[in-house]
Simulated assay, not measured.
Amino acid sequence: MSKQTPSIEAGKRVLRIEADALTALEQALDGAFDAAVGRIVEAKGRAVLAGIGKSGHVARKIAATMASTGTPALYVHPTEASHGDMGMITPDDVVIALSRSGETQELSDLIGYCRRFAIPLIAITAMAESTLGRAADIALVLPDAPEACAETKAPTTSTTLQIALGDALAVALLEQRGFTAEHFRQFHPGGALGARLMRVGDLMHAGEEMPLTAADTPMSEALIAMSEKGFGAVGVTGANGKLAGIITDGDLRRHMGGGLLDQPASAVMTANPITTEPGVLAADALRRMTAQSPRITVLFALEDGKPAGILHIHDLLRAGIA
């Protein structure tokens, strides 16, 4: 059992304070949240996030989360807005301004601009009766919870609540828009996220790259197709062009004997093999491979029963999925 040092006690105290505040925020969500989501969905333009100091850092994070999950968004620094960047905001946009106190002086020009040009303004503040809270079309009011750093009042609990509320908005918007994993992949083509959301069709080998042979082809010829393509397997197709089976190194070992080369491919193949489809997530194809006993290393991707491509586990490894 670990020793309860002053540092551990302080860490647990902070987490308790912030966890309690998050619970209070959950219980406080009401029609204003629903109205905010609706207003953002209805906007023809973008969600424009604004804030100063720690609230500014949170606003940038919320804008990035929204932009990557289907809601066009950007961050505008309130001070820079007062010196020309206000022109980035159009009447088609909706402004989301963050300020715990609601009295941040740097937001005043932005608030006035929204009022002048009838740009919807959503406030995220702990003070409903503040300047920002009263000026907003919709006020999302944070619980007036204590900051975790009681002596200095440094933004801790309040910024945690802002981040959590921003995440709640982004997810609610995502679900309203019907944003899917495929859309998410388009916005995250690189890195681990992009890799996990790749489709079989993005990685499979198609056309002449596929090792295929007819069911009545002698094994002497089927082995040539198998060795030429380098997948350690060959697909066996019927007269209708549909995949009837697959021949792997394991099938060869099981049928090893003097007459192997004279047998037709159909006599050696494993019928009705495990397959996938081009539209399946590559990660799901990997699970199909590893769920077998023994594990398999290749899958044919079928369209209407016919081979459209072949996927090797090495393809998944190179893509960072396996």
Score class of each variant (00 low, 15 high):
158 S>A: 14
267 A>P: 07
103 E>P: 10
236 V>T: 08
153 K>P: 00
36 A>T: 00
320 G>L: 06
176 Q>A: 15
50 A>C: 13
202 D>H: 13
296 I>A: 03
263 Q>Y: 03
271 A>H: 14
99 S>P: 09
45 G>F: 06
83 H>P: 11
93 D>Y: 08
55 S>H: 01
62 I>C: 03
142 L>I: 12
69 T>K: 10
156 T>I: 07
207 G>Y: 02
63 A>N: 03
294 P>D: 15
157 T>G: 02
132 L>Q: 10
156 T>Y: 11
316 L>P: 01
21 A>K: 01
143 P>S: 14
97 A>H: 07
136 A>R: 01
164 A>Y: 01
71 T>A: 06
13 R>T: 14
127 M>V: 15
235 G>A: 12
254 R>L: 09
57 H>V: 11
177 R>S: 03
202 D>E: 14
105 Q>G: 03
128 A>V: 14
270 T>V: 10
216 D>C: 07
220 S>K: 14
221 E>W: 06
83 H>L: 11
314 H>L: 03
101 S>I: 05
88 M>P: 07
269 M>Q: 11
165 L>W: 03
40 I>H: 04
233 A>K: 00
34 D>T: 15
1 M>C: 10
299 L>C: 09
109 D>S: 14
128 A>H: 11
142 L>T: 08
235 G>N: 07
251 D>L: 07
317 L>Q: 06
314 H>I: 00
290 T>Q: 15
229 K>W: 05
74 L>A: 14
300 F>M: 10
264 P>A: 09
176 Q>C: 10
124 I>R: 07
216 D>A: 15
